[in-house]
Design a protein around this nucleic acid. Structure first.
Lengths: 202, 202, 202, 202
DNA sequence: CATGAATGAGCTTTCATTCAT
DNA sequence: GATGAATGAAAGCTCATTCAT
């Protein structure tokens, strides 16, 4: 009688360990030994569950994207208007407080850097961002429409908001001391809203 | 009479080589051997001019900051108004075209990731950003003043613009295919200007 | 009543899998996991049936020797004269065509290499070759006697034929493209026959 | 002022160490550590001089081929007739005595096994054998011609002699105890000569 | 200043073997 | 009998750094 498979759980543990180690030491600093130690596993077991180190990273990218999506959907559930959903989106990404996870944010910054140089990671990174961008464009289109504004630059506005968010992650991870307190969520919302308000009518 | 020292030049070459290699392979992928090969030097010579690998990186951070500053000053030289200087700043950072240097942008993204985990690099990164942020705050204060708006949130606006720029660097390095064409400079300027225009009067 | 043991069959499957994997990747490349996969079994089961990896190899050596012996006996059954039996022997070893098994030949070459460095394997290899050599010596003695020739060098001739065969295996496995088409069986027979014909009378 | 390069010598030492270790433990058993220890070098230095382990093996194959060629040429220098050159060739390969090098023979057997499964090694192995076979064919053609015999089967005879030699190497490495004393050189010569003598006239 | 050989620690990965179920 | 998760010791290879010349 075979032992009950716990592969799914082990894989989750390993991915979580990569996130934790990566947030502090980066991807190259996240040695298999360190990941295993953090997860409380034997080093060999990591490679039993993942073909190689990159595979863990790809899993992590998908996992972080999935967590972000889930947080937005939770916050957006009670949003009645497009503008409320926009606020929900920005809060899901940028709000500080109990839901915020600095380690995940730092890990995401590391993912972004790895995406620059590893093709597979770049693909996973883009696979995470593409639906995000599409959803955001749709959301902003709704906001523009609700205000009777031209939707022509919805995509550019979505890209801008995404850039703002990625940059806020970077700065909060590497230059928190320099930044004003809790500026990000509020400023993002106002920048977008004032931009929309000044767009030409549809 | 000793022959003239070429240390300064050699150091510049080595830093430039780190930039080039780092843009493609990241900091950990930038081995001393690879840097030396790119610079056309013997590996041992690198350690003659730099105490260790981190020292090259610290030099690179300062060098990138300095180049950015110089570009802004060149563009700002002919700017008559605060708003013109704001445009000069944004163009210096985000304009595509001949002045743009994708390798430097990618290297800066790598620097940002290293700053998350290496104390010395974080310090250098912050030493580069702090004056930038101060200068930008001053610039935005001038813009707000020129428009007769409250300057209370100049610092937050500066931080936001910086976040946008860092994020735009990240996305242009790792997800260029997903982003709209040349959105960054134009959107950055309009987002800031519309925000300013909607600020309460001073 | 316990269910019937299938140990013997499982062992055969595992040995066959070792042969197949070894022919392509060598002994060190034949990991237990690969053997199990090829045999369609769970890795743990391999060690249930064999104490360790070497034990499978020892079984394989015996099995290959046994298969070779069986093939000779089948061909020799209808051989009326010593010379006919010699031809049967050479055909059993070297004839190309339906009976030939390149994987088994390649595996045997690998066995030969392992025999050089592993004492137990060398013993098994020699235990396979010794009766072969004895039988061949006897066979050649019969041929020499039938032709009225001195039998003094029967053992040396047997050794030579064995060397030729082992070498033909090696070359057919690693340099097939270089060798003439189907030279081995015919040349072996003629070399031996002409040697015998030129031996001094008894 | 650079240190004088000793790369060529180091490479020779490493190849020699591979030969020695491989003869006793096979290719997979010849770990870089073991090679380095045998050569009296630091492990890292091995990879400084060779890109990877396979590269050492490829060098070894070429080196063994070269040594064999040199030994034949030395012995053949004083050979007046084709038959004398044939004897020189066989002696160069098979004669026991002071010139014989059991470790090189064993290493060659290991090379042969690796050639079965590694493409690059197979190519090097064939690159070593092809000129050997060509030269041998030419040599046998000369012998056949000198005796007024048909040269039609010179290539097949050359292949046969090569097979005999490879097989004799295998058996001397893994089953020396079973084989008659010093049979190989004498038997090879006589087998070939009697075959030639019985060929049809040209 | 410059060279490039040398060192050894540390990395990812593989694998025979064990064992709880 | 059978499963597959788990272990830990190697393996090949990379690399920052040192140093004789």
């Amino acid at each position: 009688m075979p032992r009950k498979s716990n592969t799914a759980e082990r894989r989750r543990e390993i991915v979580a360990a990569l996130l934790a180690v990566m947030a502090e030491r980066g991807y190259d600093g996240a040695s298999i030994q360190a990941i295993a130690r953090t997860a409380g596993l034997a080093p060999g077991l990591v490679h039993y569950h993942f073909e190689n180190k990159e595979a863990i990273l790809l899993d992590l990218v998908a996992s972080l994207a999935q967590v972000g999506r889930a947080r937005y959907e939770m916050l957006a559930a009670s949003a009645a208007s497009p503008h409320a959903r926009l606020q929900a989106y920005i809060d899901a990404r940028l709000a500080t407080g109990p839901g915020a996870d600095p380690a995940a944010v730092a890990a995401w910054v590391m993912v972004g850097a790895e995406a620059v140089r590893q093709l597979q990671v770049r693909r996973a990174y883009q696979d995470a961002l593409a639906p995000e961008l599409a959803m955001l464009t749709e959301l902003l289109r709704d906001c523009l429409e609700a205000d009777g504004r031209s939707q022509a630059r919805a995509a550019q506005l979505a890209a801008s908001l995404l850039a703002f968010i990625e940059g806020a992650f970077q700065l909060s991870s590497a230059a928190r001391e320099l930044m004003p307190e809790a500026y990000a969520a509020q400023m993002a919302l106002q920048l977008v809203q004032r931009f929309i308000a000044a767009e030409p009518a549809a």
